[in-house]
Design a protein around this nucleic acid. Structure first.
Length: 243
DNA sequence: CGGCTTTGACCAGCGC
DNA sequence: GCGCTGGTCAAAGCCG
């Protein structure tokens, strides 16, 4: 009988923790919605300025003047194990390593469109969600996009969505002028998603929430990450009218 | 045959 | 000084 009682206590404890986490997540979601609404209001009045550094650039001069280091998250097809990010440029792979914190190998690429182009990129599967590839761009292209491809420019700091080349979706976390600035990723679609409600899935959700809350508590750049999430949300919506 | 990818080796930076 | 880790090099193999 003691075992049953112990289990019951553990269950109650877990329920309390679950409730606490749920409350925290609801607060997060509420704050996200408020920020998102404020962002939409702001972007309606001064859209190009607000979006600088995030997901939508329309002007090539803004693209070329943008930051020299950025990260892109690219969703891949299920079962696609390759580390190829289609971004309109030609890349030569020069190395691959398995890093300490991620069992997936990291691939190293150099821009191969012109011999002297200094741009490099690193591509690694996202640890939290293996459906995503994380590409880190360093440097700036000293040339324009290959006109034969007809694809939009996607140099570091620019963030034009790649049209017609890939069915993937992506959002970009700008690292601005500091390439060593840490960044975190947020999947704010967690609430209200259509995941199955199996027990393993509930545990998965709880674990994810726990991870998010922990990372938020530790990371002073929450605002940056939240802005990136807003940018992602913007990217998934129909393009707002430009003035 | 030339260009690209793969992969083991090598090097530099950093922490202990 | 040593070991660990990330980044780069370069030889070998593959493919069109």
């Amino acid at each position: 009988m003691d075992a049953v009682e112990t289990l019951r206590e553990e269950l109650e404890q877990l329920q309390k923790e679950n409730e606490a986490l749920r409350s925290m997540f609801e607060v997060m979601s509420r704050k996200y919605r408020m920020l998102h609404e404020a962002y939409l209001r702001e972007s309606n009045s001064q859209f190009p300025t607000v979006c600088r550094g995030f997901t939508r650039f329309e002007r090539p001069d803004v693209q070329l003047a943008a930051a020299s280091c950025s990260q892109v998250f690219v969703e891949t097809e299920p079962g696609d194990e390759s580390l190829i990010v289609k971004d309109g440029f030609q890349w030569r792979k020069y190395g691959q390593k398995v890093t300490k914190n991620n069992p997936s190998p990291r691939a190293y690429f150099k821009c191969a469109m012109t011999p002297g182009c200094p741009v490099k990129k690193k591509v690694q599967r996202c640890l939290e969600d293996k459906a995503f590839l994380m590409a880190t761009y360093e440097g700036q292209h000293n040339h324009d996009v290959d006109p034969t491809t007809g694809q939009s420019l996607s140099s570091p700091g620019s963030s034009a969505m790649i049209s017609g080349t890939t069915p993937t979706s992506e959002f970009r976390v700008p690292v601005l002028d500091n390439p060593f600035r840490p960044s975190i990723t947020l999947d704010l679609n967690l609430s209200g998603s259509n995941r199955e409600n199996s027990s393993t899935d509930v545990k998965y959700k709880e674990k994810r929430i726990e991870e998010y809350v922990a990372s938020l508590a530790k990371d002073p750049n929450f605002t940056v990450a939240l802005a990136a999430a807003v940018a992602r949300s913007m990217a998934e919506q129909p393009k707002p009218p430009t003035p």
